[in-house]
Simulated scan of single mutants.
Amino acid sequence: MIFTIYGDYIRHYGNKIWIGSLIHLMKEFGHNEQSVRVAVSRIMKQGWLESEKVGNKSYYFLTPRGEARIEEAAIRIFALNPKKWDGKWRMLMYTIPEEKRRIRDELRKELIWSGFGSIANGCWISPNNLEKEVHLLIKNYDIQAHVDFFVAEYQGPEKNRTLVEKGWPLQEIAEKHQQFISTYSKKFMEHQSMMDKNLMSDAECFVARTMLVHEYRKFLFFDPGLPKELLPEVWSGNDAAKLFEKYYRLLAQSASRFFEHVFREDNDIREKNEFFID
């Protein structure tokens, strides 16, 4: 949830927030001060956040690694339409020795996060342009001697969609999108009716929008964001994205107003930059 708040709000206001304001925001979701401080400490140990003291106040901001991850996530979350495919596959093959198992396990998680699918042991593919991300992973994990990376065209004997079937459980992904639609279409209609009657406070809109983004961002861990040429003709992910966009727009202004109210009390806003879907 803290990552969601940084990604959807704080990063547009200088990436830095006073711990007291963060605690205030997290209390809206039922989290107490101690749990927030413990979570922030854990996130710092993982290398996503740094802190600084100004007077007697502690401020927390994203590390360069944290900023890069948040930006990547935001691009993927708000990519509401499948991209056009250039017809090429990105293929990463590795043979990482057993004594580096931890690195191998972490690399596997990073590849899944970025949208790669596994078609064989130690062989991962993606139709998306992820050259930059792959070279950064190779550098960060210092595994140049254990990997090979290709950008290539598939020459058969099967069709490109056969690779998709090998690499990703499309049926399961579609079902998860359908579950999102089933749950959040009802919430959308309820909140739309309430807002039309001025029955939702800014704080309630903040909670609803944050929960919406928090839930939708989970797709990043199992939906690779395949180009339209490789997706089924009827794809529930398209409907889920449209619902997300409509629901987000409905809540955006009121939610941002609540965040700014809390943020402005204790933080110096250098530049106002509200985050709406273009």
Rank of each mutant, 00 (worst) to 15 (best):
I96F: 11
V213D: 06
P232D: 12
S193H: 07
F150V: 01
N128Q: 10
Y184K: 12
K176H: 09
L130R: 00
I96M: 11
L107V: 12
Q171W: 07
N129M: 06
D196S: 12
E133R: 07
N198S: 10
M211C: 13
N128I: 02
Q192N: 08
C205I: 09
Q179D: 06
Y141E: 02
P227H: 08
M195K: 14
W168P: 03
E172W: 08
G122I: 11
L212T: 01
I125C: 03
W124Y: 15
I143N: 01
A203D: 02
Y154N: 03
K166N: 12
D86P: 06
V134K: 08
L137S: 06
G122W: 09
L231F: 06
E131H: 10
K139I: 05
R102L: 06
I112M: 08
D202C: 08
F150N: 05
F221C: 02
K139V: 05
R108K: 11
V134M: 13
W168L: 04
K197T: 01
F150W: 09
T95M: 09
I103L: 09
R217S: 04
P224L: 02
K139C: 08
I112N: 03
I181Q: 06
P232A: 07
H146I: 04
K88R: 14
K228F: 11
E172C: 10
R161N: 13
L231D: 01
Q155F: 10
L170A: 07
R217M: 04
K109V: 00
I173F: 05
T183A: 12
F180Y: 02
T183G: 05
H135T: 13
V147D: 00
M211V: 11
Q192L: 13
S185N: 11
Q155M: 14
A203S: 10
D202A: 09
H146M: 07
F180C: 01
K100H: 12
M189L: 13
M189K: 14
H135Q: 13
E190D: 11
F180H: 00
M200Y: 00
D142C: 03
V207I: 08
K228I: 03
E153Q: 11
F180P: 00
L230H: 12
A145W: 05
E99M: 10
V164W: 14
L107D: 00
N121F: 08
P127S: 14
K132F: 03
L136C: 03
H214Q: 15
D86Y: 08
Y154E: 06
L220R: 05
C205L: 10
L111M: 11
F219G: 02
K88F: 12
G122P: 01
G117Q: 13
C123Q: 05
N160H: 06
W89L: 07
H214V: 07
K88W: 04
R102N: 06
R108L: 03
M91Y: 01
E110R: 14
K109I: 01
K139F: 11
Q155D: 13
Y94L: 07
E158H: 14
C205G: 09
K166A: 14
A203W: 00
R101K: 15
E153V: 06
E175K: 14
F188L: 09
V151K: 14
W124C: 03
V207N: 00
F206V: 04
P157K: 09
P157R: 09
F219P: 00
N198E: 07
G156F: 06
V213R: 07
G167I: 01
A208D: 08
